[in-house]
Simulated assay, not measured.
Amino acid sequence: MKTMTKKISRKTPPSQSAQMVETIYGCKWSLTVYKLLAEGINRPGEMVRNVEGLTTKVLNQCLKRNTEFGILERISYNEVPPRVEYEVTELGAKFLKILDGLEALQFEIEQQQPDTNNE
């Protein structure tokens, strides 16, 4: 009697990257921070001044979370007064491409849905 061997094992979701996406989309300011960085605004004080409703406390939490994930890098300069800047890491650039893909997918989904506003 021949025994059949299974060729494919159960596929499991990518837990760390899925958690990153969930956490980043759960933070209402992360996407705004990425946009600021893309526009060359990389200092926290400048970020707070450029976004209505963004507080220093919330921004610091957002920046810390993104730094812990490895999406952003914190650069401290040994100056008086102290200067801190943030930049997107190599991993962060890859992650932002994924977020861009999700945004494009969302746009496509919205385009396929019937317009319910005219009814």
Score class of each variant (00 low, 15 high):
38 A>T: 12
40 G>Y: 01
41 I>K: 13
41 I>T: 11
42 N>K: 04
43 R>W: 04
44 P>V: 01
44 P>S: 10
45 G>H: 02
45 G>I: 05
46 E>Y: 09
46 E>S: 12
46 E>P: 02
47 M>L: 03
47 M>G: 07
47 M>P: 10
48 V>Y: 00
48 V>M: 02
49 R>K: 09
49 R>I: 03
50 N>S: 14
52 E>W: 01
52 E>N: 15
52 E>P: 12
53 G>L: 05
53 G>W: 03
53 G>S: 08
54 L>Q: 05
54 L>D: 07
54 L>H: 14
54 L>T: 09
55 T>F: 03
55 T>I: 02
56 T>A: 10
57 K>F: 08
57 K>W: 07
57 K>C: 02
58 V>A: 10
59 L>N: 10
60 N>F: 06
60 N>G: 09
61 Q>Y: 12
61 Q>S: 14
61 Q>H: 04
61 Q>R: 11
62 C>P: 01
63 L>G: 10
63 L>E: 01
64 K>C: 04
64 K>T: 08
65 R>D: 09
65 R>C: 05
65 R>G: 07
65 R>W: 12
65 R>S: 12
65 R>L: 13
66 N>P: 04
66 N>V: 01
66 N>K: 07
66 N>G: 11
67 T>W: 08
67 T>R: 14
67 T>A: 11
67 T>I: 02
68 E>C: 03
68 E>K: 12
69 F>R: 08
69 F>H: 13
70 G>M: 00
70 G>S: 07
70 G>F: 00
71 I>N: 07
71 I>D: 08
71 I>A: 02
71 I>Y: 02
72 L>K: 00
72 L>P: 07
73 E>V: 00
73 E>K: 15
73 E>I: 01
73 E>C: 10
74 R>L: 05
74 R>W: 00
74 R>K: 15
74 R>Q: 14
74 R>P: 04
75 I>N: 03
75 I>T: 10
75 I>C: 10
75 I>V: 15
75 I>F: 10
77 Y>W: 09
78 N>P: 03
78 N>G: 08
79 E>K: 15
80 V>H: 11
80 V>Y: 14
80 V>E: 03
81 P>A: 12
81 P>C: 06
81 P>W: 00
82 P>V: 10
82 P>W: 00
83 R>T: 03
84 V>H: 12
84 V>R: 08
84 V>C: 02
86 Y>A: 09
86 Y>C: 10
86 Y>Q: 10
87 E>N: 11
87 E>Y: 13
87 E>G: 13
88 V>P: 03
88 V>K: 14
88 V>A: 13
89 T>I: 03
90 E>N: 11
90 E>A: 06
90 E>P: 02
90 E>T: 10
92 G>A: 03
92 G>F: 00
92 G>C: 04
93 A>V: 04
93 A>W: 07
94 K>D: 11
94 K>A: 06
95 F>Y: 09
95 F>W: 08
95 F>P: 07
96 L>T: 07
96 L>V: 08
